[in-house]
C-alpha cells in the first residue's frame, strides 16, 4: 500500500472518529452556502459591468470571485478525501445537472464554449462599431493575441480532458479485471475468500477514481483561472457573469424539475 493510500485511510478513520457528518450532508450544506455566495458575487459583478470605467477596481473583484471558485474546489477536495463515493453521485445537484457530468463535475472545455457563445452574443450587435475599430469594452473585442492564447489553452484543455477520460476509462474497465472476476466467482460459489479481499480490491479502484476526480477538479479550476488571466478585467467580469448565470439558472431549473417530478410521484 502506498503512503498516499495510508494517508487516505487515516483521513477516513479520523473523520469517522470525530463523528463528523457524513460527506454527503456536509458537502450539501457547504454547496448551498457556496451557491448563495455565487449569487451575491453575480450581483456585484453585474453592478461592476454596468458602471463604466475603473478597470483598476475590477481586478480585485475578479480575483475575489476566482478565490471563491478556488475555495469551492478546496472544500470539495477535503470532502473527496473523506469519501469519494458521494462526489460521483451528488445529491446536492439536480438530476438535470447530473445528466451532463464529466468526471464528477462540469466539463472543462465547456468554459471555451461559454466564452465563445457569450462573446458571440456581444459581438454581432456591435459588428459595425468593431469594424471601424471602436472598442466595445466587453468580450466582443478580444484581440488577436487573446484569441490565439485562448485557442492554445483550449487545445491544451482538450488534450488534458482526454487524458483524464482515458484514465477514468482504465479504472472503470478494471472493475472487470481477472482478480475481480476471480473474487466474485468465489463469492458466488460461496467459497471461502479472505474476509476483506473484496473491500481491498474495491478500495484500490476507489482511490484511483479519487485521483481522477482530483485531476478533473484541478483542470476545471485551472481552466477558469487560465481564461480569466488571458482576459482583461472588464472581459473577465463579463465572462464570470455568464458562468454564474449559466450555473445558477441551470441548477434552479433542474431543482424545480426534480421537485415537480417528486410531486407527481414520478421517480427521478
Amino acid at each position: 500500500m502506498s503512503s498516499a493510500d495510508e494517508n487516505q485511510q487515516r483521513g477516513e478513520e479520523t473523520a469517522a472518529a470525530r463523528n463528523e457528518p457524513r460527506a454527503p450532508e456536509h458537502f450539501a450544506k457547504f454547496f448551498e452556502c457556496w451557491l448563495a455566495e455565487q449569487e451575491r458575487d453575480l450581483q456585484v459583478l453585474r453592478t461592476a459591468a454596468a458602471s463604466a470605467g475603473e478597470e483598476l477596481r475590477l481586478r480585485p473583484l475578479v480575483d475575489r470571485v476566482l478565490g471563491h471558485y478556488e475555495y469551492y474546489y478546496c472544500a470539495k477536495a477535503a470532502s473527496v478525501r473523506r469519501d469519494v463515493l458521494p462526489m460521483f453521485n451528488p445529491t446536492w445537484t439536480s438530476s438535470t445537472e447530473n445528466l451532463f457530468l464529466w468526471a464528477g463535475g462540469w466539463r472543462p472545455t465547456m468554459a471555451f464554449h461559454l466564452l465563445y457563445s457569450k462573446s458571440g452574443l456581444q459581438f454581432e450587435p456591435r459588428l459595425l462599431e468593431l469594424i471601424v475599430g471602436n472598442p466595445t469594452r466587453d468580450l466582443a473585442d478580444m484581440s488577436p493575441d487573446q484569441l490565439e492564447r485562448i485557442d492554445g489553452l483550449h487545445r491544451l484543455t482538450v488534450r488534458l480532458e482526454k487524458e483524464i477520460s482515458e484514465e477514468e476509462a482504465q479504472v472503470q474497465e478494471s472493475v472487470a479485471d481477472a482478480r475481480m472476476v476471480e473474487l466474485t466467482h468465489a463469492l458466488a460459489e460461496s467459497e471461502e475468500v479472505e474476509a476483506d479481499a473484496m473491500e481491498q480490491e474495491m478500495k484500490r479502484k476507489r482511490d484511483r477514481m479519487n485521483e481522477v476526480l482530483q485531476r478533473a477538479d484541478q483542470l476545471r479550476l485551472e481552466t477558469l483561472k487560465g481564461l480569466v488571466e488571458i482576459l482583461n478585467p472588464v472581459q473577465a467580469v463579463h465572462f464570470l457573469i455568464a458562468a454564474a448565470e449559466l450555473h445558477l439558472k441551470v441548477h434552479e431549473f433542474g431543482k424545480s424539475k426534480d421537485a415537480a417530478g417528486d410531486a407527481t410521484g414520478r421517480p427521478e
Binding site: 462573446s119 458571440g120 452574443l121 475599430g133 466582443a140 484569441l147
Partner: peptide, 16 residues
C-alpha cells in the same frame, strides 16, 4: 489584414 482575419473569425464563432 490582421484585423479583418480576427473579425471574420469572431463573426464565424458568433454565428455558431
Amino acid at each position: 489584414c490582421a484585423d479583418a482575419a480576427i473579425l471574420l473569425t469572431k463573426l464565424a464563432l458568433a454565428r455558431h
